[in-house]
Nucleic acid binder design. Structure first.
Length: 421
RNA sequence: GCGGGUGUAGCUCAGGUGGUUAGAGCGCCAGUUUGUGGCACUGGAGGCCGCGGGUUCAAGUCCCGUCACUCGCCCCA
């Protein structure tokens, strides 16, 4: 049955997994709303150009990780590998640039042709927020605070670390990049081959290396914080003050970077050690140059994306809402089937969760009722139908009582004050 | 994209150095109980041993390839 496998790196979301996804999305959605972020969705497919422009030709995502579709019309179409570019595109193409700020929340699947691993899927799911049109660092604080609240709602804050860093403004960053490249070129021959390759593509990324030899070389490298101009320093300070004020714990990691040119000022990452090497669970930053790079007006932006699949792996089953236990309808003989059907419908209209039992005699159906974790079995047999009653059996205590059909709802509600749960 | 590990029933896993009909626990189905479930007991179904090729008288077991998962790197959420 090899051909009946799912496509590599793409997983079914069976009910248990799906519930975890829902829980995460729902938590983020509700919290985003309390911050004034409105939910939106963009298409799963975009023109390749959208990502080429925003992520840049040099990024791995664009150069080798996109699913490209041979469109019948000959258009260059890709499955979206991330969410921000699509939102930015929508802002331009829908003409939303007139009134700022814009605050969006989204959730959905992304696609990257990577080598799968635990926590690294080819169809991955993300939640994300974007705040456009605000330069004030207060915006950055709120965006991070929303991320933190979401993690808090999921009960994960004690298992993750928030790291932040600043890339400074254009001036600071460019100056620093030059210094860093000059320094690293002197040590070029000692760098790992990975880092050598990054030297001209994406030098800031070298700060992030895992290679021990590289790390040693970096100890003598100039620090980005020393290149920050006063304005950039001020921005970073205000963000830290804000986070502290809101009791959001963070660590400044001077080696945390973003490679692409339109990133500036804040960069942040939420990581965990619980998930192995795919430990980044949420990450974001400020991208004031993004809209202009796309060919739109120059509108500042800040946001983040969180990995639903990775967050879901950190969730415990007992964090999920308890499943509602159903009422099980048991017609004793085929001729009472329709009475059962009607009864089920009546109770559902009153808000109860009702399941039909199919096939077998009373014993077998009680067994089935038990298996579906029903709290009550509602039995309809000759006696009951003749007297317009129903036998209501409590499957925990074994007690049973005959009740008129129209008293049933009141009785069950009374027994279960939570109202049918 | 690079390097390593794994792949036996629905699930978790046993199956030294190749050797008859491939096992266990859990789960599933049935019976003990045809108007009374859970528990217990008894029985049963369910395996192209991931897939393809090779070596051999003989392959779940050895070799090669392939697919999937997985660990690390790369990259990222």
């Amino acid at each position: 049955m090899a051909s009946l496998q799912p496509v590599r790196g793409m997983h079914d979301l069976l009910p248990l997994e799906f519930q975890k996804h829902s829980l995460i999305i729902e938590a983020a959605r509700q919290l985003a709303a309390t911050y004034g972020f409105a939910e939106m969705a963009t298409p799963l497919m975009e023109f390749k150009e959208v990502f080429k422009r925003t992520l840049g030709d040099v990024s791995d995502i664009v150069s080798k990780e996109m699913y490209e579709i041979a469109d019948r019309g000959g258009e260059d179409i890709v499955l979206r590998p991330e969410g921000t570019a699509g939102v930015a595109r929508a802002i331009i193409s829908e003409g939303l640039t007139q009134s700022m700020p814009l605050k969006f929340f989204y959730a959905g699947p992304m696609f990257r042709y990577e080598r799968p691993q635990k926590g690294r899927l080819r169809q991955l799911h993300q939640i994300g927020v974007e705040l456009f049109g605000v330069v004030d660092p207060l915006g950055d604080v709120e965006v991070i605070s929303l991320a933190f609240d979401t993690l808090k709602a999921l009960g994960l804050t004690h298992r993750v670390t928030l790291e932040i860093n600043t890339l400074g403004d254009d001036e600071s960053r460019k100056q620093y990049r030059n210094q860093l490249v000059t320094y690293l070129k002197d040590h070029h021959h000692k760098l790992s081959s990975d880092s050598q390759a990054r030297l001209d593509r994406n030098p800031l990324r070298i700060l992030d290396t895992k290679d021990e030899g590289d790390k040693k070389i970096l100890e003598g490298a100039p620090l980005l914080s020393e290149s920050l101009n006063p304005a950039s320093q001020e921005v970073f300070a205000k963000i830290q003050e804000g986070l502290t004020l809101l009791n959001i714990p963070f660590k400044v990691n001077p080696h945390l970077v973003r490679g692409l040119d339109y990133y500036c000022h804040i960069a942040f990452e939420v990581t965990t050690t619980d998930l192995g090497s795919q430990g980044t669970v949420l990450a974001g930053g400020r991208y004031d140059g993004l809209m202009a790079t796309m060919g739109g007006p120059s509108i500042p932006g800040v946001g983040w994306a969180g990995g639903i699949d990775r967050l879901a792996m950190m969730l415990h089953e007992d964090q999920l809402p308890a499943p509602k236990s159903p009422l099980a309808i048991i017609p004793m003989e085929e001729r009472f089937d329709f009475q059962g059907l009607e009864l089920a419908q009546r109770l559902r209209e009153q808000g109860f969760v009702v399941e039909m039992t199919y096939g077998g005699g009373l014993g077998k159906r009680l067994k089935k009722a038990n298996k579906m974790k029903a709290r009550y079995a509602l039995i309809l047999g000759e006696e009951e139908v003749a007297s317009h009653k129903v036998t209501c059996k409590d499957l925990e205590s074994g007690d049973q009582i005959q009740l008129a059909v129209d008293q049933l709802g009141a009785f069950l509600r009374d027994k279960k004050p939570e109202g049918g749960e």
